[in-house]
Write a protein that binds this DNA or RNA. Structure first.
Length: 536
RNA sequence: GGGGGCGUAGCUCAGCGGAAGAGCAGUGGCCUUUUAAGCCAUUGGUCGAAGGUUCGAUUCCUUCCGCCCUCACCA
């Protein structure tokens, strides 16, 4: 899309120097070819929406404003109070005769009721909405002509007394109005808002101002992230940032996105996990670190999966997965208490109780309970896998076990449950239990059938780690790294303190705490397939 | 990738073989306390796209595009 800056012209012709018309042509050339034919005058800048009659109407109003000396796209407006604060200045019991203090506010016009020489409008800012009462005799005939050029969606600044109308509505009785910006496109229907889910995601900027509650959801998301940071900082953790672009995609079993660094002519991967870098920092002596940032996985999309998603990873030296369970409970329970109204929340009509301690159950036992036989009963596991149509001949036995587990057990786990002690073969970065070398000290926290967190006692034996990396690479699994990360092995060889590590899916946590059915509802701009070129 | 559903005006939605509709928004008019303001008049459509069946297709069929649900995938 062509840049907005400098597009608007108030006059038709005669005031354009040659250089400017050349500029206009350059901008126009960037506009989609099919649209060009519709514009025949160089002095009229191209605007790809200008064929829409509703847009034309509003462009015309913008010109009329400019002709009156009003900048249709406005300027800085100082001293505006939050509308919520303005409302608070009008006490419920304020007497009719009291002289209220003047207020100054700015916002977007969401409703407009025109009564001829009087106009009521509802002005919304980030904090709320307030009615503005505009009377021609109060603001003057000249300013009232500007009011007549207002549309729903425009931005406006107002100044005036705050008091109730005869009908009891707290209102700004405007003494002065300042035009702050034209909206060329109409706002959605006033009663139903923007309901089409595709448009809500594609045009989130509209969703945010048109649908009540959407903004609040994202404000809550920000508050949850802020509190997670302070929870961890209060316990001595240091927030760090590690590379998003990796030469070797390690730290999780996932297919990576591939990119390319031109300067060195080398392929790079967007990270699937920051894990290996964070553990290098444990070697470096930072001891307690966390990173709260994006991961990228080139895999399926669903109501619980976005190609880029936000992950919290935490590493604590001298701890183990038991310690990580306690930390997870604290983080999650604290977030629920502060941002979901209590430890017992409602998610999609079901109550979920985050009161610690969460249920702890062993993988092996959950499996036996659900399947009716032990997970090392090869014949029966394979038979059941075939029944469930999750059988893969090429897969190692533990993967088959896990496929059965995920089909039979995960869907039953609604209340927060730590599933503990996974088969070691599923956990190439985790340390085995001292009392059982076949089992890794690892847990997954399942809530509402979703994996919310994943943690283990970190493997810090460089010899064992290298062997496991080699086995992974040899498996040629497309989710395994393509090569061994020898630098990571080298880091371990310098001595990594025993440690617990934790990953928490932040989008999913926010889904639970804001009762959002889809991950797209908690990501401002979720990934959507692109539409045809030139589509608005 | 498989299965199911959806796509009609800027927005919210009807219509589903026989002349494309409503409400809101917009436009013109009346109205100096309305709040889903009201009243009168009125503009606006490649019915997602392309093919096919039919005398006739928004409607039935096929393919494609996009979204949602679901399964698979996601240690």
């Amino acid at each position: 899309m062509a840049p907005l800056r400098g597009r608007y012209r108030c006059g038709r012709s005669g005031n354009k120097p040659r250089a400017s018309s050349r500029g206009a042509r350059t901008r126009r050339d960037r506009v989609v070819g099919a649209r060009r034919s519709g514009i025949d005058s160089v002095s009229e800048p191209a605007f790809h929406l200008a064929e829409d009659p509703l847009v034309k109407e509003r462009l015309d109003k913008a010109r009329k404003l400019a002709a009156r000396g009003v900048d249709p796209f406005g300027r800085r407006f100082d001293g505006a109070e939050a509308i919520a604060a303005v409302r608070a200045r009008c006490p419920e019991d304020s007497a009719e005769g009291t002289v209220p203090p003047p207020a100054r506010a700015a916002g977007r016009i969401m409703r407009l009721r025109d009564h001829g020489k009087v106009v009521f409008l509802d002005l919304a800012d980030r904090t709320g909405t307030i009615q503005v009462y505009l009377r021609r005799d109060d603001i003057g005939a000249e300013a009232f002509e500007v009011v007549r050029l207002l549309d729903l969606g425009d931005h406006l600044g107002v100044e005036g007394a705050v008091k109730k109308t005869h009908k009891g509505e707290i209102s700004i009785f405007a003494a002065r109005v300042v035009f702050l910006g034209k909206a060329l496109l109409p706002i959605p229907e006033k009663w139903h808002g923007l309901k089409d889910v595709e448009l809500r995601y594609r045009h989130r900027y509209v969703d945010l101002f048109a649908n009540p509650g959407v903004r609040d959801g994202f404000v809550r998301r920000a508050a949850i992230l802020r509190d997670i940071r302070s929870y961890l900082e209060a316990r001595g953790f240091l927030e760090v940032e590690t590379p998003m672009m990796h030469a070797i995609a390690g730290g999780a079993a996932a297919r990576p996105f591939v990119t390319h660094l031109h300067a060195l002519d080398m392929p790079l991967f967007l990270r699937v996990a920051p894990e290996l870098y964070l553990k290098r920092l444990l070697v470096g002596g930072l001891e307690r670190v966390f990173e709260l940032n994006r991961n990228f996985r080139n895999e399926g999309m669903s109501p619980r999966h976005n190609p880029e998603f936000t992950m919290l990873e935490v590493y604590q030296a001298y701890a183990d997965y038991e310690e990580m369970m306690t930390l997870t409970e604290g983080l999650v329970a604290d977030a629920a208490a502060r941002h979901a109204g209590g430890l017992k929340i409602r998610y999609q009509g079901r109550e979920i109780d985050f009161t610690p301690p969460f249920r702890r159950a062993r993988y092996r036992e959950l499996f036996a309970e659900a399947a009716g036989f032990a997970l090392d009963d090869r014949a029966r596991v394979e038979a059941r896998a075939k029944e469930l149509e999750v059988w893969e001949a090429a897969a190692p036995f533990e993967k088959v076990v896990n496929a059965v587990f995920e089909t039979l057990v995960e869907p039953t786990l609604v209340q927060p449950t730590f599933v503990c002690d996974f088969p070691r073969a599923l956990c190439p970065l985790a340390k085995a239990r001292a009392d059982d070398p076949e089992v890794a000290e690892r847990f997954e926290l399942i809530v509402s059938r979703m994996e919310l967190a994943n943690a283990f006692t970190e493997l810090n034996d460089p010899v064992d780690q290298e062997a496991r990396f080699r086995a992974q690479v040899a498996s040629r699994d497309e989710e395994a790294p393509g090569e061994v990360d020898y630098d990571y092995v080298r880091a371990l060889a310098h001595g990594m303190p025993p440690a617990g590590g934790l990953g928490v899916g932040i989008d999913r946590l926010v889904m639970l705490l804001t009762d959002a059915p889809s991950i797209k509802d908690v990501i401002l701009f979720p990934f959507l397939r692109r539409q045809g070129a030139g589509e608005a």
